[in-house]
């Protein structure tokens, strides 16, 4: 093979060469383990009591699942067992609350950033991104301290005579929601801000030139046109909220646990790898379902975009 044909071949595949490090990474550290996890979810669980300490018990081979089996029993068990069902319902409920709060907080903030002058805009964007530059655990522990019974908020409220005794803020639904919103909102805000900046500003001018007040121009033009972009932000928020893990774990209580916190519980505490894997895939399925349903509903509502 001559040099020139070799370089021809290289250039034909050069796209793939550029992609290859990422591709390698994705295949070996993401797709591979995911497939294996799926396989694990189809094994029979070892201990049906939920305490199947999977130590090597010799005869049956030991381990974290029954080798060589193929079954959907983990999935069936999940949907039959009230314990798991409750956790799933709470996960969805929490995701719903977090999504609503995040969107309600993010949209006005994004709109404010969009409207701000150049200097204020840069400042606000830095403020939004800043929490994301610090460690997530630092953020959550910080919140724990802030919301504690003898934390700043309670001290301030008592000090100002607004309340007589500290209110329980931490380890409640409130603290879980607040921390989860804090973790997601920066992304939501950035995506909506980008969507707003993508709008044609002359449309608002045109609306006002046709007699619309600022408010009506917003309601009839800016807001509806920002929806397709905000919809992307909404999906990111929901998917992320469904996977809530750190917030319920560190700021919740035993009644406020989610599917994501259940995965390590099953896997490591109960040493039931099969069940843990099954739950992981149920979370994934839930996310797909939500994206699918939203696409069907909202995708058809914004048909003018593709028309």
């Amino acid at each position: 093979m001559t040099i020139s044909t070799l370089s021809d071949r290289l250039s034909r595949y050069n796209k793939f060469f550029l992609l290859s490090p990422l591709l390698f990474f994705l295949i070996f550290f993401f797709a591979g383990p995911l497939l294996w996890l799926f396989r694990v979810s189809l094994y029979q669980s070892r201990g049906s009591s939920g305490f199947g300490i999977g130590g090597a018990d010799g005869k049956e081979g030991g381990g974290f699942y029954v080798e060589g089996t193929w079954t959907l029993e983990n999935y069936f068990k999940f949907f039959q067992d009230e314990y798991f069902r409750d956790i799933m319902f709470f996960t969805v409920e929490l995701a719903f609350i977090v999504t609503v709060v995040t969107m309600l907080v993010s949209y006005p903030m994004a709109y404010y950033i969009y409207k701000a002058g150049a200097k204020l805009k840069t400042f606000l964007l830095i403020i939004v991104i800043l929490p994301k530059l610090s460690n997530m655990l630092v953020l959550v522990y910080g919140l724990q301290i802030l919301l504690a019974n003898n934390g700043w908020i309670n001290k301030a409220l008592v000090g100002l005579n607004i309340i007589d005794e500290p209110v329980k803020l931490v380890y409640t639904l409130f603290s879980v929601v607040v921390s989860k919103v804090l973790l997601i909102a920066p992304y939501t805000i950035l995506v909506i801000t980008a969507a707003l900046h993508g709008l044609d500003r002359t449309l608002r001018d045109a609306a006002m030139g046709l007699g619309a007040s600022g408010t009506r121009a917003f309601l009839t033009i800016t807001f509806p046109l920002s929806l397709p972009g905000s919809y992307v932000a909404l999906l990111i928020t929901i998917v992320w909220a469904l996977g809530a893990f750190v917030s319920p774990l560190l700021l919740g209580n035993p009644d406020l646990q989610t599917l994501a916190t259940e995965v390590p519980k099953q896997t490591f505490e109960n040493v039931n790898w099969a069940m843990g894997s099954a739950i992981a895939f149920i979370i994934l399925g839930l996310m797909f379902l939500v994206v699918l349903v939203f696409n069907l509903i909202i995708g058809s509502a914004i048909k003018w975009r593709t028309a």
Binding site: T202, L203, D205, M208, G209, A212, L225, I302, W304
Partner: peptide, 20 residues
């Protein structure tokens, strides 16, 4: 203010509302 003037402007980009 802009919205109180009875002046019609046609923009170079037309500025039609794409969702209507």
């Amino acid at each position: 203010p802009l919205e109180k003037r009875n002046i019609g402007m046609v923009f170079q980009s037309y500025a039609l509302f794409p969702h209507m």
